[in-house]
Amino acid sequence: MNQTTAFPTTALSEWRDYFALLKPRVMTLVVFTALCAMLAAPGHIHPFLGAVSVLCIAVAAGAAGALNQWYEADIDALMKRTANRPLPAGRVAPGEALAFGVALGAGAVAIMGLVSNWTAAFWLAVSILFYVIVYTVWLKRRTPQNIVIGGAAGAFPVIVGWAAVTGDTSLLPWLLFAIIFLWTPPHFWALALFMEADYSKAGVPMLPVTHGLAATRKQILAYTALLVPVSIAPAVLGLTGWIFGGTVLLLGAIFMAMAVQVARSHATVAADMRVEKRLFKFSLLYLAIIFGALVADRLLLA
């Protein structure tokens, strides 16, 4: 083989490819929930150090995303939605993605420790390791409950954000953790219902692929039935005020009604899954608004 004719991978990669490795869209949610937790936490952090802490959380999430893409390049290549990612498309070499992820993750944890405290840095490290090792490597390809476990990885940033301000973790951040944890299955399974064909092709054991659409609909309803009371718990326990309480009560009722509609639906093709798509979109709004309400509660009522 004449190696001089082949482009070296680094000749193909653009800076945008490295940015894409960070999964910037996933990062948005992580940064938002962590920032809300920081704003809602009792205590004070210098605004500059607070901003650096948020940056560390974002970079750590990006590092986890890069390591996830490094490990999953083979299945990403099989799905339409992910086939053009930098690794399956051959624009970034696997070794580069691995080094990029490890360096960013280690850097983010170290700077978090120096800027805020080592409790926050510890939970930040746990969040990366959990996402990469427990979710990506261990469970994603083995169990249809992979999304449930992945939800925990997405929920850690609130613990990190809270710890960055207070130096410890109390009941409220763990309840916020539980809200994101329980929100993830209905959110992603709603998506998985109308993306089932894609996951099936890639051989990822998503619930609609392994247990069918009807079982997934029931699971969505079950997790929503757990999510709503847990969402209301901070207000019931007196940890938040009426702004948060009223918001979760109203939005929780809507979420529940939509989950019931999804459970009753019998649509089998993506084009007919209007209620599923609506639940998916509403679930994003739900999380954004209740965390916004949490901050409003703290800033206006505390």
């Binding site: 190696q3 001089t4 070296p8 000749a11 653009e14 800076w15």
Partner: peptide
């Protein structure tokens, strides 16, 4: 390693490299 790149390929590569270096800077 890149002896048989066409001028267009070389120009594209150099543009990508420049953008990467600016981003790194």
């Amino acid at each position: 390693m890149s002896a048989d790149w066409t001028p267009a390929e070389r120009a594209a590569f150099e543009q990508r490299r420049r953008a990467r270096n600016i981003a790194l800077g």
